[in-house]
Amino acid sequence: MKIAMLEPLSVSDEIIVELSKRLKDENHEFVAFDTVTRDVEELKKRAEGADALIIANNPLPGEVIKSLDQLKFISVAFTGIDHIDKAACVEKGVKVSNAAGYSNQSVAELVIGMIISKLRNLVECNTVVRQGKTKDGLVGFELAGKTVGIVGTGAIGLKTAELLKAFGCNLLGYDTVEKEEAKSLGIQYVGLEELLKESDIVTLHVPLIDETIGLINKDNLKLMKPNALLINCARGPVIDIEATAQALKEKKLAGAAIDVFEIEPPLPVDHVLFGADNALLTPHVAFATKESMVKRAQITFNNIYSWLEGNQINKML
């Protein structure tokens, strides 16, 4: 079989050589590309003749998928698969697996960092020190004792809850399915409206599906406390960006920390959130640590080996 890795996985060449060694030992053909492309014709060329593909988080259009007569499987080095044309995969009978769990710790840790940064005004403190000023106006808040609403109690939501519990937070949760593991961490499940009303901090950990697009919108932003913080390290379209920016500018929301947007960074210079000085913005970096990148590569290649053995794991399609 031919396996093509269409883009780099942000690990060393040595790791890729080690992980792909079994493919070569079993007489499979393995090709790897060390640059990213979004050019459809170039993607077709790279994937030509492949039985299985490895991709990360760059788009794989349906035009490419439909052009590959031998394609049977895609191993995605990412948690979400909304950057793949799923309809084309279903039409062609192509199976898809993701890299479930690779960034749970990384994302949860960034969420904690974002919350503390906002509560303790770390960005602003750095600025005033460099300007020769003092802490005047920058007295912050403790995380201990705060009520944190966790929207989405999957693996990342639960890891975040575990860290928040260590800080002494009160935990509320919202999800379509209540989990005993969540309850054992002290999460009290409530409806979304109650969670938004009662939380000092709301952190989002839901997948991007039809039901979660615009989950946090103009109407339910009004339910949040004016001194509350909103954290989004899930998917950009889960929140209404325009409405969120407006709430921040009008100080109807004390602050936000956002790692994901309606498009991938770089953002346009006139992006609506740039006008909200109480928003902490990061360039989709929550998943990106040295440790998580190695885990991601390992899971992605394990998906390939399991599929070759007739046992698809981390199945998404």
Rank of each mutant, 00 (worst) to 15 (best):
M224S: 01
E162W: 14
K218Q: 15
L172E: 11
C233D: 00
Y174R: 07
V238S: 05
N170E: 15
E198M: 12
A234R: 06
I201C: 04
T212K: 11
L185V: 02
N170L: 11
K197A: 11
L185R: 01
I241L: 10
K179R: 14
H205C: 03
I216N: 00
E180R: 06
E181C: 02
E211N: 15
V148R: 04
E242V: 06
E178G: 06
N220Y: 08
D175S: 15
G152H: 14
H205K: 09
L196Y: 10
N232S: 09
D200E: 08
G152K: 12
P226S: 10
G186E: 13
I156M: 11
I187W: 10
A155G: 03
I239K: 04
H205I: 01
Q188A: 14
V202M: 08
E211C: 13
V151H: 08
D219L: 11
I209E: 13
D240Q: 12
I187F: 15
I239C: 12
T153I: 04
V177I: 13
C169V: 04
R235E: 12
L230H: 08
T176F: 12
L230S: 07
V148T: 05
V190P: 00
V177Q: 03
E211F: 14
K165L: 14
I231Y: 01
V177W: 02
G186Y: 05
C169W: 02
K183M: 13
L163N: 07
T244K: 08
I213V: 09
I187L: 14
A166V: 04
L192K: 10
A161K: 09
N217I: 02
T212R: 07
T212G: 12
V148N: 12
L164Y: 05
T203P: 00
A166L: 12
L164T: 06
L208T: 01
L223E: 03
A166N: 06
I213N: 11
L171Y: 11
V238W: 10
A161P: 01
T212H: 12
K197L: 08
K225S: 12
A243W: 00
G191K: 08
A182K: 03
